[in-house]
Amino acid sequence: MCRWLAYSGDPLQISRVVLDTKHSLVAQSLNSPLGAETVNGDGFGLGWYGPSRDPGDAPAVFHSIEPAWHDENLRELAQAVESQLFFAHVRAAAGPPIQQTNCHPFRYGRWLFMHNGAIAGFAAMKRELLLEVAPEFFLGIRGTTDSELVFHLALTHGLMDEPIEAMARTLRRIEEAGRAHGVTAAVQGTFAVTDGATVWAFRYSSEHRSRTLFHSEDIDVLRAMYPDFERLRVFGTRARLIVSEPLNDLPGAFIEVPESTAVVVTPDGAYEHQPFLAPA
């Protein structure tokens, strides 16, 4: 499917995690040991916020259909841009064509969204779900992926007011539509959304066997564990990462997010875990 990461914290050069770590996102685009596909070479995208955390500020985005390991612009951009909150995504297309409008992250106003996984039976239910997108969001759909439709359905269901509740309503609605078309397990994946201040990430699938998801350990804890590990010094004390798979091999550096869980990274850098559509 795909690989992604979300960073929040003190301003950080994007290349520090997208390019420079042992298992960076670009490295995962070529070799993803924990992914459904080993290679994720069907385009990539970045979304980042400027130095202000003003909630009215919209993020910048950059999309390319080049494989991440092959695109010189990605290296130039990632080394030049520092951001206190950014999303990065490498794509393995599950059917929709390889085009810029199908690359994550997707943007609406100040919001960013990305997904790893798939909606089973999407072609059968696509028209029905598209017609449920509110008119004020409908024209924002520019591509053909299930992921972009999930985002705009979530906006319709109140994402900008209640992110966790809106994602729950959206995925339950997709499951309902799937059952009507004979699909018993429609939803698979991990999802991330941000308004530029808070990050919400979700690990959920209808079968409760979701794609992998991890978040970083507190940086002060890691420095105490590994006082001689030089690379930790580039990160500020509020640095937080949510990733499809760990970026290094340090034991304890990344913590697996439980199945059917929502993870929240607050503006002050705290992690919060909440059950999300957990089985009864």
Rank of each mutant, 00 (worst) to 15 (best):
I98N: 15
Q100F: 01
E76N: 08
G95T: 12
Q99G: 06
H89K: 08
E76H: 11
Q99K: 15
S83H: 01
F87D: 09
A93H: 08
S83F: 00
A80N: 03
A78T: 14
F87Y: 06
T101F: 04
S83T: 02
R91V: 01
E82D: 02
I98T: 14
H104C: 10
F86W: 07
E76A: 13
T101Q: 15
Q99L: 14
A78M: 09
F106S: 05
G95W: 02
I98K: 13
N102H: 03
G95R: 10
F86C: 01
V90L: 07
A93V: 08
C103L: 12
Q99W: 00
G95Y: 03
A78C: 15
F87R: 04
V81C: 06
P105I: 06
Q84F: 07
H89W: 06
V81F: 01
A94Y: 00
L77D: 02
A92W: 01
E76D: 11
L77M: 13
F86V: 02
S83W: 00
F106W: 03
F87Q: 09
N102S: 05
E76Q: 14
F86L: 02
P105G: 11
Q99T: 12
A78N: 09
P97A: 12
A93P: 15
R91L: 01
P105Q: 11
A94S: 15
Q84W: 07
E76P: 00
H104M: 05
A80G: 04
F86A: 02
L85Q: 09
L77F: 07
F87G: 10
L77V: 08
F86H: 05
V90D: 09
Q84R: 15
A80Y: 01
F87N: 09
R91M: 01
A93E: 04
Q79W: 03
E82L: 02
A88R: 07
H89V: 12
Q79K: 11
R91P: 14
Q100C: 02
N102T: 01
A93T: 15
N102D: 05
A78H: 09
Q100L: 11
E82G: 01
I98L: 14
Q84G: 14
F106Q: 07
V90A: 09
G95E: 10
S83N: 06
S83A: 10
H104F: 11
H104K: 04
V81W: 00
A88K: 05
R91Q: 02
P96H: 10
L85F: 00
Q100N: 10
Q79N: 15
Q100V: 06
P105M: 06
H89S: 08
I98A: 12
I98M: 08
A92T: 01
A78W: 03
P96G: 10
L77R: 15
L77Y: 07
Q84D: 12
R91C: 03
E82Y: 04
L85R: 11
A93Y: 05
F106E: 06
A94G: 06
Q84C: 02
F86T: 05
Q79M: 08
L85M: 14
H104R: 04
A92D: 04
A93N: 04
P96K: 08
F87V: 07
P97T: 12
F86K: 03
H89A: 07
P96C: 09
S83P: 00
Q100R: 13
F87A: 05
A92H: 07
A80W: 00
E82F: 02
F106M: 03
V81H: 04
Q99A: 15
P105W: 06
Q99R: 15
V90R: 04
